[in-house]
Design a binder for these strands. Structure first.
Length: 636
RNA sequence: GCCAAUAUAGCUCAGCUGGCAGAGCAGCAGUUUCGUAAACUGCAGGUCAAGGGUUCGAAUCCCUUUAUUGGCUCCA
């Protein structure tokens, strides 16, 4: 007999060889149905796993991440089985579970159409109805290869060949379908109650464009129909908040055919930008940053010296001036280097914090462009901090605090990632270690949890990335802090130390918004266009009932304008309900209705975007209220 | 860049197997001066993304290009 400790702390005794599923059945049939995978001594295991020793077992359901993954992994097998039924010549590549559902890559002669997806969905429903049990078996390497060769699955053969020597090669079989798979998988196909295939896309075999393009089908499944409905609603909500849609509706920005990836900012979008930039300037001024501006076009030699020519050329735009080669800046750092070098710094001057709202141009592949999120020119809220080696930690902490402050103003949650040395990089391994450790140390002092992204650093140094979480759970990379021991070397930056000798300063690159354009896109989606009052392009809209109040409204607008409140008026000969409807669709925070009554009493009737009718008040009182919200940057 | 889909009025969209280019909203003109999410009538608005081809005839079928969308890859 063996002893198994469960999540709730209880311990149960079983015969050796009991499976995860047996334990679940023993507890309750309901739990057995809900159990999708197990966690045995901290490792995710298949529900068919035989247990031969004492240990701790967690039963994973759809509520747990790993339970979901098993459910979706099996769903991908069901999809592959359906595709094999309908398209026997399709060759199988890979089909994993992903964060939201699963996909499977197929090699087919003809791409799948939307009608094909419907047919596949129906076939999947049929497989689910048959409630096929999955069983797992293992084969030695040679037999496994032969098995897949017989089935004419060249991709599977390649996968098996690439498995490490000592790997257990396991297969899962459900009815007439067998797939090479490490698992885990759920017990049978019957628990998949709701299926939706979402899209087809091309995807390279093993993600490399040198390989053949396969057809990838994305899908999602759930144990309950209602969960699928909820998921589809969430997708719908995301579509409604799409910054491209809202940006058009609210007349914030556009991208014209004449400039793919080069956005145009409209008057109202400019107000947003300017508010963000004003805020940024003020906060950076407070923290000892000096603002600079460097040219957009600089000589090729500079880019060779900075290393961009070798490491970033494919993303750069070039031009010729008087027969000389110039590049349009993809980053602001080389310009800042030149400014640092314009004079001699003493150790007493450091740290020097040079900030620049710099417009950079980068050639991005046409297929990756996406509204303001992915563009070919954008404004980085950049800064380069030059410092003594012993100042590194505190400077990084200063930036972490600044980023934290900025994100909280907008009500964002975020998480942090640390990226280490990539393959294509400059500098010695020791420099990289030193830099990486400095970043780690700062994070640990701040008590921030972080994830490590191996090999994801910039070519000149490791970095900390800040990922914003928006209100529907998506994340966006915005702020970064990148340590750079290379650039000071390349540009021979120096400061004069207490010993009168020249020394090498350390430098960090950092951004808070990341890209102003992307940040505006994120804000738009976060607030669904209903921006906080302090950045709203229009803060107050005056609505008249009849043209008898036009003069009063015009006077009030002038008065509000003097105090820096952004107003508009709707004096058209329309009904008040119609004007309110329009102002609401424009997401204006406050509507002030002024009719005969208000003119007579010297009041305004206030209607808030979020709270509805607030009754009448004196214009001064309303002004005090909104001014307070603006200065406090209230989120509503 | 690669795979697929899409492109019709300022916006949202209809236009089926080829046969005179349509609607709603917005705009303009008039009527209505109205109290918290759409008053009424009329007018105007188009090189159907661009170019080529098939056809008696193309928004519609074919090809090329451009852009957009969803992915792959890449990244702020």
């Amino acid at each position: 007999m063996i002893q198994i400790k469960l999540k709730d702390g209880s311990v149960r005794e079983y015969q050796e060889g009991v499976t995860v599923l047996d334990v679940a059945k023993d507890i309750s049939p309901g739990l057995a149905r809900a159990t999708l995978a197990g966690e045995w001594n901290g490792k995710v295991v298949d529900i068919r796993k035989k247990i031969d020793e004492d240990g701790t077992l967690n039963l994973l359901t759809f509520e747990e991440e790993q339970g979901k993954k098993a459910f979706w992994h099996t769903s991908s097998h069901i999809m592959a089985q359906a595709v094999k039924h309908l398209f026997p010549k399709a060759r199988l590549a890979i089909g994993p579970a992903i964060d939201n559902g699963f996909y499977y890559d197929f090699d087919v002669d003809k791409p799948f159409s939307t009608e094909d997806l419907e047919d596949i969905e129906k076939e999947m429903a049929q497989i689910v109805k048959e409630n096929l049990e999955l069983d797992r078996f293992e084969l030695p390497r040679q037999d496994a290869i032969q098995y897949m060769e017989e089935r004419e699955e060249p991709y599977k053969v390649e996968l098996i060949r690439d498995l490490p020597e000592d790997a257990v090669i396991s297969f899962y079989r459900q009815g007439d379908f067998t797939d090479l798979c490490a698992g885990p998988h759920i017990a049978s196909t019957g628990s998949v109650k709701a299926i939706r295939l979402l899209s087809v896309a091309g995807a390279y075999w093993r993600g490399s464009e040198k390989n053949k393009m396969l057809q990838r089908i994305y899908g999602i499944t759930f144990p309950k129909k209602s969960q699928l409905k909820e998921y589809m609603n969430r997708l719908e909500e995301a579509r409604k908040r799409d910054h491209r849609k809202i940006g058009k509706e609210l007349d914030l920005f556009s991208i014209q055919e004449e400039g793919p990836g080069f956005p145009f900012f409209h008057p109202k979008g400019m107000i947003l930008r300017n508010q963000l930039e004003d805020f940024w300037r003020k906060e950076h001024g407070k923290r000892g940053y000096q603002e600079i501006r460097t040219p957009m076009i600089l000589n090729r030699d500079l880019w060779i010296r900075s290393g961009h020519w070798d490491h970033y050329k494919d993303n750069m735009y070039f031009t010729k001036i008087d027969g000389e080669d110039y590049a349009i800046k993809p980053m602001n750092c080389p310009g800042s280097m030149l400014l640092y070098k314009r004079k001699i710094y003493s150790y007493r001057d450091l740290p020097v914090r040079m900030a620049e709202l710099g417009l950079v141009h980068r050639h991005e592949l046409s297929g990756t462009l996406h509204g303001l999120m992915r563009v070919r020119c954008f404004t980085q809220d950049d800064a380069h901090i030059f410092m003594l080696p012993e100042q590194v930690r505190d400077e990084i902490i200063g930036v972490i605090d600044l980023v934290d402050y900025f994100y909280k103003v907008f009500g964002f949650r975020y998480h942090v990632e640390l990226s280490t040395k990539p393959e294509d990089s400059m500098g010695s391994a020791e420099d990289w270690d030193r830099a990486t450790n400095a970043l780690k140390e700062a994070l640990e002092i701040k008590g921030l949890d972080y994830r490590i992204n191996e090999g994801d650093g910039a070519f000149y140094g490791p970095k900390i990335d800040f990922h914003l979480e928006d209100c529907i759970g998506r994340t966006w990379q915005c702020g970064t802090i990148q340590l750079d021991f290379q650039m000071p070397e390349r540009f021979d930056l120096t400061y004069v130390g207490p010993d009168g000798e020249k020394h090498r300063p350390v430098m960090i690159h950092r951004v808070v918004f990341g890209s102003i354009e992307r940040f505006i896109a994120i804000l738009t989606e976060q607030f669904a266009g209903a921006f906080p009052v302090w950045i709203s392009p229009v803060q107050v809209k005056f609505l008249s009932i009849t043209n008898r109040s036009d003069d009063t409204i015009n006077k009030m607008m002038e008065d509000f304008g003097k105090d820096g409140i952004r107003t508009e008026s709707d004096l058209r000969n329309e009904k008040i309900g119609y004007k309110i409807r329009e102002a609401r669709m424009e997401k204006v925070p406050y509507m002030l209705v002024v009719g005969d009554k208000e003119v007579e009493n010297g009041t305004v009737s206030v209607r808030s975007r979020s709270k509805g009718d607030l009754g009448t008040m004196k214009p001064e009182d309303f002004k005090a209220r909104i001014e307070k919200e603006i200065s406090k940057k209230t989120l509503d």
